[in-house]
Design a protein around this nucleic acid. Structure first.
Length: 564
RNA sequence: GCGCUUGUAGCUCAGCAGGAUAGAGCAACCGCCUCCUAAGCGGUAGGUCAUCGGUUCAAUUCCGAUCAAGCGCACCA
């Protein structure tokens, strides 16, 4: 960043103030290839000003720039290319990383502001599928990134523990369930009832009425309904927590939908007070015509509540409890309309903080091109995928590094890491069709590739023995291979900023791959542990790579084993 | 029908808030372990950036239309 400003200033000086620093800064770019330098300024905008061809302007600018601050300044066609002083630059950046360690890249974007993140939110009595993984893993990474940028994230697991579905589940249990069967295998058994309910329901729609009646009882506090609900919820949560443990993810709150049960009356009365509620077809709605949205259904004909009513209560509760600067919802893009409605209703209620609510949407995972559906039994169990990945990692270790200590732990870290990394690799919004082989792939642009790069770096440092790098003379490096690595390292803080601003963990995933690539390339061509004058600088670079890779992985929620 | 999202190599995707010959990974083919972990490195091959228009000195990138795909469109979440 400082370097870029230096370049911009040089251009401003050379043009004798014809362009402002900001103008120049916005035009400066990074050339695609190494031989074109580190920064480039295209002279097209000067063509009109000078009434000359850009190709002619570029060399004239070069004449006026003093080369002291740079290795080289060169005109190539219409571009002025800058080669920065590699040795001085790498000296600075390596010392900075060695000094700051894992704090490198930390910055104050958030001033400590609270940011509740609604994430994961699986439904009680249903297994977790690959769909839940996305929300969980994206939310977790955003939390780490926000923390790094000095926000205070609050991870909220907004459990789907309320709604008509429980009426269905209770009805199904009453019809076909057995207590013993549920005790033995809670989730799968409950799921079985639920799927069965929907099958039978196709031909006997009257079951829906029964289910609605049960949910009504539940909302009214009926003893039997509440006990069953509590039981299902406890069993489910036990199971979910085992998966979160595997993923290494913890939550600050498990307040799910049921938590807002007693907080909805207030919402309804506020809506009434502000004359926002209307009756329509026997239900209570808020008209959102002026937002170009469908009306928000606040209460059903039978008086029970809906998803949005609870989300309104939750939004208000979070605002009061956390006084947030932003409130995030990591939820699939099929719910885009819901969040538009939510924000619109809050706006109508006079809460201007509704602008601070952001729906962090993500693409759909399909299987065989079809949407995953718990009801239709078309699901991919997260548990299975994680287990498959860990098994595969075990096989790889047996094959490639049979003498590795704590094999099981490493297999866990690599297998689970591969799955998480894969989910965070692409743009959030992309849909993807689930393909097990791809998810548990360990070669190419994958999590294990990054972990492996880190392990290699650690291995060199181990072999280097006890060297006090912090006090050693790190003169800097200037060869082409290390330069690629160094400029990647220097990019880390900017990447964090971008990832936070765009709520996009994939920025970090891609960055980690790029850094790994340049490091592996370097590794293949340069022997680090050669005794010469630059050895300390090389080791400093290796230590920096290890630190930044480990930190990148941490921000993604992936472990970085020292050996694998 | 309306709204949102997407359309780049056989497959999966990058392309940094328009710029210099469009990049990776996988799959295919060919090389590289007497040398810090070959989960690696290098090479070959593979593209009318969906189509048509517009803005601009410059468009894969911005705008519009068309076509195609996915998701959503009140008593599920």
């Amino acid at each position: 960043m400082k370097q870029k400003q230096l370049v911009a200033q040089a251009i401003v000086d050379a043009t004798e103030g014809q362009l402002s620093l900001d103008e120049v800064m916005s035009k400066i770019e990074v050339p695609k290839t190494y031989d074109l330098g580190d920064y480039a300024f295209p002279t097209f905008i000067l063509a009109k000003l000078y009434h000359k061809a850009p190709q002619q302007i570029a060399p004239e600018l070069v004449e006026k720039i003093s080369g002291d601050a740079f290795d080289k300044v060169q005109a190539v066609g219409p571009y002025v290319n800058f080669f920065i002083d590699k040795k001085a630059f790498s000296h600075n950046i390596l010392n900075q990383i060695l000094d700051q360690k894992e704090a490198f890249g930390q910055q104050d974007l958030g001033h400590g502001g609270n940011v509740p993140i609604d994430m994961s939110s699986p439904n009680i009595a249903k297994p977790m599928s690959m769909g839940h993984l996305r929300s969980t893993v994206i939310g977790n990474s955003l939390a780490e990134l926000l923390k790094k940028a000095n926000y205070n994230p609050i991870k909220i697991n907004h459990l789907g523990d309320w709604g008509t579905q429980f009426g269905k589940l209770i009805e199904a249990y009453k019809l076909w369930g057995s207590e013993e069967e549920v005790r033995q295998d809670p989730i799968n058994t409950l799921l079985k009832y639920y799927v069965h309910f929907h099958q039978v329901d196709e031909e006997h729609p009257e079951l829906d009425d029964e289910a609605r009646a049960w949910f009504k009882k539940l909302e009214d506090g009926d003893k039997e309904a509440t006990e069953l609900w509590q039981w299902f919820r406890d069993e489910s949560l036990k199971f979910f927590k085992s998966i979160y443990a595997k993923l290494g993810i913890e939550f600050d709150s498990y307040n799910g939908e049921s938590f807002y049960n007693d907080k909805m009356d207030e919402i309804v009365s506020i809506l009434e007070d502000k004359n926002l509620l209307q009756e329509s077809r026997g239900a209570e709605i808020v008209d959102l015509e002026k937002y170009g949205l469908n009306p928000a259904l606040i209460k059903k004909t039978d008086g029970t509540t809906l998803y949005i009513t609870r989300d309104l209560a939750a939004a208000l509760y979070r605002f009061r409890t956390y006084d947030f600067v932003k409130s995030l919802y990591v939820v699939g893009n099929e719910q885009t309309n819901h969040f538009k409605q939510l924000k619109a209703v809050l706006k109508e209620m006079g809460y201007d903080w509704s602008d601070d609510i952001h729906h962090i949407q993500f693409g759909l995972i399909t299987s065989g091109g079809k949407k995953l559906s718990t009801r239709k039994g078309n699901i991919i169990l997260l548990e299975d995928v994680l287990n498959d990945a860990v098994d595969l990692a075990k096989k790889q270790i047996a094959e490639k590094n049979p003498d590795l200590p704590n094999k099981d732990q490493v297999a866990e870290e690599v297998g689970v890491g591969a799955v998480i990394f894969h989910d965070l690799k692409n743009d959030r919004l992309n849909n993807f069709d689930f393909n097990l082989e791809e998810v548990v792939r360990f070669e190419g642009e994958t999590g294990p590739y990054v972990q492996y790069s880190h392990a290699r770096a650690m291995s060199i440092l181990r072999k280097a023995g006890q060297i006090d790098l912090e006090n050693a003379d790190i003169a800097g490096l200037q060869d082409e291979g290390s330069w690629e690595v160094v400029r990647q390292l220097a990019n880390f803080p900017a990447m964090i900023k971008r990832a936070v601003e765009e709520y996009e963990p994939s920025v970090i995933t891609k960055y980690a791959i790029q850094l790994s690539k340049s490091f592996n390339k370097y590794y293949a061509h340069t022997k680090v542990l050669t005794d010469d004058a630059e050895k300390n600088s090389r080791l400093a670079m290796v230590a920096s790579v290890a630190a930044v890779l480990k930190e990148s992985l941490r921000l993604l929620g992936v472990k970085a084993p020292d050996e694998m």
